[in-house]
Design a protein around this nucleic acid. Structure first.
Lengths: 222, 222
DNA sequence: TCCTTTCAAGACCATTCGGTCTAGATATGG
DNA sequence: CCATATCTAGACCGAATGGTCTTGAAAGGA
């Protein structure tokens, strides 16, 4: 029925209707679920994050989630669906973070500095070596998995839009150098930041990375 | 004996002494090897490139190299050693390309433009979707495989050094904007270019990517 | 109490994994 | 021709894969 291939459609629908909006006035009559589904997704996310999709085996997920095989399959359908949920959570976290850092009402340049500083911190030293679930997924599965493709594309577009928004506001406030186009600069920053994730795998020092990020931003800021 | 773990040392030595400088006055007496080892590495590289390490199965490699199981194991030891050879070839190709584009005697700014244009071409459209063996390897195996770690680290250092060299020459020729530090700018460009590889997975248009790269370089060039 | 549901533990399944080995054909040099 | 070495094809190996199913205990509502 669920076979390991990539017919995510059915599984997707299944988990959505089974998981979202818990107990809509519907009271199940047996023993209630005794574990936190979202916490399990989070733990699974951690495993996928540090090992990648293919290198993560079922026993790894069972150990991390502290679930039995049966419970895990009942709750999530299969490995692939669980992975997609973990990826969704990762993306949501990243976008939420950006929404805070680049909040429209706050000072855009400060926001951009915070945004870059966050990436510097996450891509240097041990944090850097841990890598990024989204970038790792993009490199491992993009082009082979339609559901993943969609999420990757959406994420980069969303990120670029937020950065472009902040740059536009900075430009309107006269803080940008002459000739800087916000949308073009946004693409530059997104590439830079994702490149940080890649070279971050070698565990550079925070100092170096921060100086590099500062040097880049200084090319745009007046 | 060779078991699938990561004792690359022995295999490494084996293939080195068995492959480099062919027939040093030594004439083997039986049937000679009837396939091109380097061509096989190249074909294997193609498979790892488009599928990644874990997702590449032995039958994939046999199909691509047109070798039998026995021949492949006799020639390369095991999957991991073959992968390392493929990775080495990929890295060598990339560095050779850079040595041409950023040749010390030629105009450094033109070289940097060519360097960026090459990345733009390789990271947009279908080329972009194909991705980069090195970045994919970094995200998939770095931190879990010491031999890979070494190669990734070496590559980024080598790339940064070449770009920094070109930028230094550009600065000496007075082509750089005031306040641009070549080594810092080199780190920026390396991050940007590796970020291109990541977002390239969504297959952006050549036009957009080229415009982005131009916009970045224009922030450094006078 | 009874019914229903979920739980953990683990047996079980077919398939695939990376890797070894054999058999028989083939191609070279002596 | 003989000895040597390599080739392909595929059987074979133990281990691991993702996934299903059974068992029996436990926890809720009616």
């Amino acid at each position: 029925m669920t076979q390991s291939g990539h017919l995510q459609f059915k599984d997707q629908l299944v988990y959505k209707s089974a998981v979202s909006h818990q107990t809509p006035a519907r009271l199940p009559r047996g023993r209630p679920r005794s574990f936190d589904t979202e916490a399990a997704v989070e733990r699974a996310m951690g495993v996928f994050w540090s090992r990648g999709y293919h290198a993560t085996a079922l026993p790894d997920l069972l150990r991390a989630t502290k679930l039995s095989r049966g419970s895990l399959y009942a709750a999530f359908g299969d490995k692939h669906s669980l992975f997609l949920r973990a990826l969704d959570r990762y993306v949501a976290n990243a976008l939420t973070r950006m929404d805070i850092e680049l909040a429209p009402h706050s000072e855009p340049v400060d926001g951009l500095r915070a945004y870059l500083a966050g990436y510097v911190e996450r891509t240097s030293g041990a944090n850097g070596r841990r890598g990024c679930l989204l970038v790792a997924t993009a490199m491992e599965l993009a082009g082979h998995d339609a559901e993943v493709d969609r999420r990757i594309g959406r994420f980069f577009k969303a990120m670029e839009a937020r950065v472009a928004g902040a740059l536009s506001r900075a430009k309107a406030a006269g803080k940008l150098d002459d000739g800087v186009d916000p949308s073009s600069a946004a693409r530059i920053l997104v590439c830079f930041v994702e490149g940080l994730r890649v070279v971050g795998k070698t565990g550079p020092t925070t100092i170096t990375s921060q100086a590099t990020a500062d040097a880049l931003l200084d090319r745009f800021i007046k």
